[in-house]
Design a protein around this nucleic acid. Sequence first.
DNA 1: GCCGTTTTCGGCCCGACTGTTTTCAGTCG
Length: 572
Amino acid sequence: MPVKNNDIAQIFDKTADLLEINGENQYRIRAYRSAAQIIRNLSRNVADMIENDEDLTQLSGIGKDLAGKIKHIVNTGELELLKELEEEIPPELTKIMDISGLGAKKVKAIYNELDVKNIDELKKAAEEHKIRKIEGFGAKTEENILEGIKRFKKESRRHKIAIADQYAVPLIEYLKKDKNIRNIEVAGSYRRRLETIGDIDILVTCNEGKEVIDRFTDYEDIGEVVAKGKTKSTVLLKSGIQVDLRVIPQESYGAAMLYFTGSKAHNIAIRDMAIKRGWKINEYGVYEDDKLIAGETEEEIYEKLGLKYIDPALRENRGEIEAAQEGRLPELIIRDNIKGDLHTHTKVTDGRNTLEEMVKAAQKMGYEYIANTEHSRHVSVTGGLNEKELAEHIKKIDKFNEKLENFTVLKGIEVDILEDGSLDLTDDILKELDIVVCSVHSKFRLDRKKQTERILRAMDNENFHILGHPTGRMINERPPYDIDMERIMKKAKERGCFLELNSHPARLDLNDIYLKIAKDMGIKIAISTDAHSINSYENIRYGIGQARRGWIEADDVINTRNLKNLKELLKR
DNA sequence: GCCGTTTTCGGCCCGACTGTTTTCAGTCG
């Protein structure tokens, strides 16, 4: 099985951790971390690039040495340096570094003094008050370690963006009641609309910082105040989600928004541009010597650097800075571009509302059409339809449409792709439909070759329109099917098939990186919600956020078309 | 370990907070 980009990234990350514990040169460590990030964000398979004999040192941040190491990893799956380090230092120490408050230096000290190698031993040592005896450590640090372990076990994963929304929105409403606040906004990965967020970063400008910080730490949903200073405070909500609040001077608001929105890679690149012009950028502004020359808005900072404004969704240092320099930033899709939902269920199978209710709610969304796509028979737990039932259902929709004005229900199905790549319903009935969404709902664990060929074969069916939730992943719960997405995309392009971006916040499938590849290949996307009730249409905003991260414009998406143009596209 | 409009050597983003210290190291974002 080819080595995946993420495998290489993980090896480099782990190497960096161990080098850090070893007290190596911090810039060497940074080089490994940055390489991990570059590889992880790459929109192509490194293994393929090597096979094509491409020069990896073309990637900024990858030099001769790392290029060689990447090649070695791709060929052998291993890195000698990491193996050597693991013999020298217990590899589990890197896990201890994930505990908040513990970095390389402290981990090393604890290991040297007490021979603590893993989290269990760490807990024991702290409970026996051995930690506080180490030089530079004290009782407070020991308490924090125990707290950190508790928290780590409870909340070690990132939170889905929809979960973050549930906490961020009411907290912002609460803070806004303080009239002393002038600007308030959530920055960080939340603002970039990442599919998951680590914590919620709130920035405010105001007259009286102390007042805002006090109000913040008084919030009723807080479980613990972790830190509280004059300009910054960190709390844990009862749910375990961390929230950081920062008070910013008005003249620095743009600089702070830029800085705390990230991503880190984007910030470093921006700062680097400033350094080349003899300036310095920090969270307070752009400085020429000690003179503030920009900072109140993000726009003016980008402008100073000769850049068009870059949308937060694009700030990953994946080419957006070059695009901004050359005036070829995409005009990103917005919610209002969407004219209808192409993947919906009703009570007929496993949905919760009737078709009538679903249509009414869709009209409220401002849509012109929806596709009704019930499950096919193979998904028996949902009451999936067989040929005869679907034929009757089609007649019902025809009748239903006669009553509608300025709105159309497209006759569709979400048909299962069976293990052998055949579709769960006959061609005779499929060809009666306006739209056929094809999805994998079983046999998730086929090997890469079989799983890929299963989908490729399905695409050969002339009734195939859209590949539903293409990778099958559930964020934090289930990994993607093992498939060769590049082959699948090539086939989609060749056969005129479309790929779904499933907007359900637990799926967000395709991810941003695949979306960008699809766009670059000229494959059109359907942004759908897979709505099982009238309340799910709103999930489209998560799909839109993800699409923007993938550089998607309105024209790349089939359900931005009016009904007539959509039907043209569906003719294949 | 990477990189080059001052450089093939000598830089590399940078400030706030905490806890341990009496002026700073470690961690974090």
